[in-house]
Design a protein around this nucleic acid. Structure first.
Lengths: 215, 215
DNA sequence: GGGAAAATACCGCAATGGGGGATTTTAAGG
DNA sequence: CCTTAAAATCCCCCATTGCGGTATTTTCCC
């Protein structure tokens, strides 16, 4: 089975070079090569790639926004960012936008193919210098990570279940039905959850739960 | 110039295998192999490695603490963590401890050597599945938020004022008084704001406003 | 067996969110 | 000048949510 790749790259020479490399490698196939991301969703829809190789610097709409559009709307498609620069801001924005990897154009074609394969397999890929910046980020953020006040919120099993249902978008009534308890009991549980999480609304609770990895 | 490696690994078989691989590869040399990290600083001092290959699971003192000791006291020495597990907690702790890389024991010797070289050159190395967890961390934590659609939400001047008051913690009544408009008008404005921001509650709106730097 | 914590359940009230409709003011352009 | 669109203003209705109580039963640990 071949890995289908779609390329977004404004430079014609590079675009065609990438296409040639990919199509010339057994196991890879380029199903689309586009010079901009103005119709990125339609392009992805059309070329049905497994992995998108995305240039981050492009005239007009930029690659990070396009990445977010793809991961939001077609989450099964992985995005591998390719760039000439490696400044922190772009890296972190790309990662937050849901990219599965971030490599440099200066990397060898072999490494690029390896990265495409890693990403296709569900992993992630980073050039060493990129990974290093990510590492540094963790070291710097150390304080925040190591002492997040209380990571244990003492939620009971039942409360975690209710919280999980809340995170699925259920309202009180839905939760009551799914948990086989009364509407009022749901309200009670949720009140307790809010107290324990020190929040005051559904959305805050869900945010905190996601950040802390509860439930 | 050869890259000098020190190994910390409690399993004798693995330790010697690693030693053999490293010494059998041109450009690499094993200058020390230790079964525990009880005298890690002395061992590092003695073997003068460029890169330490550190097993994270060891009886007695663990690899993460040892990593922190090394990076704190001998910052020129890089540490590459090697582990059988890839659970989130250990990864992030290791990264925070200053590790330069994190690879799995299931990776091939070739990849390990590549990782050692990447780390030696000042980059960092991660197995794809590790990198993937790091990526997820960024997405989940909303470290930096990227909004593709439009960073400008077309909020009118008045709506931004109302939003600012909301962010100060005012309720409908307070906002009405401070903005010299009626309670109902405040509600109308806020409804419009929610629509434009694509959110459905006060807390989400405030979160988004903060992240996007609106108002 | 007794006590603490959890799970269950109910009531009432205030605040919030979402739907609709409506008027006036302002801005912009033909 | 007039038309039109957007912004700003106001009102009503209703469901959901958050928060304050209270209370009973179940579960679990000492």
């Amino acid at each position: 089975m071949e890995i289908n790749i779609a390329i977004f790259e404004d430079n014609k020479l590079i675009r065609e070079a990438l296409q040639t490399i990919i199509n010339g490698t057994p196991g890879f196939r380029c199903t689309g090569a586009f010079a901009n991301v103005n119709q990125v969703l339609a392009d992805v829809e059309f070329s049905r790639p497994d992995v998108v190789l995305m240039d981050i610097e492009m005239p007009g709409r930029n690659g990070i926004d396009a990445t977010k559009l793809i991961t939001d709307n077609v989450p099964t498609v992985k995005v591998l960012i390719q760039t000439v620069f490696n400044d922190n801001d772009k890296i972190f924005k790309a990662l937050c936008a849901g990219a599965s990897g971030y490599i440099l154009k200066s990397d060898s074609p072999l490494k690029m193919l390896q990265a495409l394969e890693d990403v296709y397999k569900g992993g992630a890929a980073m050039s060493p210098s990129i990974a290093q910046k990510v590492m540094q980020f963790f070291v710097r953020q150390n304080v925040i990570l190591v002492q997040p006040e209380e990571t244990d919120f003492d939620l009971s099993t039942r409360e975690k279940e209710i919280l999980a249902l809340m995170m699925e978008g259920c309202n009180y009534r839905d939760i009551a039905d799914k948990a086989f308890i009364s509407y009022e009991t749901v309200r009670t549980h949720i009140k307790h959850i809010y107290k324990k999480l020190h929040v005051a609304s559904r959305s805050e609770a869900i945010l905190k739960a996601r950040q802390q990895g509860i439930a």
